Computed example of a mutant assay.
Amino acid sequence: MSIDYDEAYARSRDVPAFSNGTEGETWMANWCYRCLRDAPHRNMGKGSGCPLILVAMMSRTPAEWLDGPRDEQGRYSMADQYHCIEFKVPGGGGGGEPRPKPDPPGMDGLFPRPERATRMFVQPTPEPARQMAGAS
């Protein structure tokens, strides 16, 4: 994994990731238990495991866990409460850094290739609650 525990803890939000063990276990079964980043620790006990799980165990929410889909009332599926940007899907998805499609042999590219944009994982700031009309 490209980050360590101290970095992940420093970036995390001081809010518990899950309200109870069932919620945490359901989410981890859908994400962490399938992720290849934590597989060596999970399957063979090697390494220290995923630092994001450790941050969540310290009653904080890692910055790498973005809020998942919500309905109009703010409800969400426990298994999809967050989307982890460090998740590495098993059995595919390539590996390593993404590589652009090569130019045909003996031909120069028509346009220069742009630099790949970086992904930001900063949570948006919540909007203040709006007052209802007529409420004092």
Rank of each mutant, 00 (worst) to 15 (best):
A56P: 00
T61R: 13
G134A: 12
C35H: 03
E64V: 13
G92M: 11
R11K: 03
G94P: 04
P112V: 02
P124L: 11
A79P: 01
D6Y: 02
F18L: 08
S12H: 12
C35Q: 03
G94M: 04
P40C: 00
A129W: 03
M132A: 15
Y82V: 00
T118R: 14
D38T: 03
Q131T: 11
D14Y: 02
E97G: 04
E64Y: 13
R130C: 11
G106P: 00
N20Q: 04
G49C: 06
D4Q: 10
L110C: 05
R34V: 03
H83P: 02
G21I: 01
Y33S: 09
I53Q: 13
R34M: 08
M28A: 13
G92Y: 06
L66Y: 03
R60L: 05
L52N: 01
G45P: 06
W65D: 12
M78E: 01
P128M: 13
I53N: 02
R130Y: 09
K46G: 08
E115N: 08
P16D: 00
C84G: 07
K88M: 10
C84A: 06
K46F: 10
P51I: 14
G91K: 08
G74V: 06
P104S: 07
R13N: 05
S2L: 05
C84K: 03
M28D: 11
M58P: 01
A63F: 09
E97Q: 05
E127V: 04
P102M: 06
F87Y: 15
D108W: 13
Q131Y: 11
F121P: 00
N20F: 07
C50T: 14
G49L: 04
R119G: 03
S59H: 08
P114F: 03
A133V: 02
S19H: 12
A8D: 02
S59A: 12
S2C: 02
P69W: 08
Y76V: 11
P98W: 04
D38M: 00
A133K: 09
R13S: 08
S48E: 03
P100D: 09
V122I: 10
G106Q: 00
R75E: 05
Q131C: 03
D108A: 15
G106H: 00
A117N: 15
A117Y: 06
E127K: 02
L52I: 03
R70M: 01
L66M: 08
M107P: 01
T26S: 07
C35D: 14
E127N: 04
D38F: 00
R116S: 02
S136P: 12
P102F: 09
T61S: 06
R34F: 11
D71N: 11
P69K: 09
W31M: 08
T125P: 02
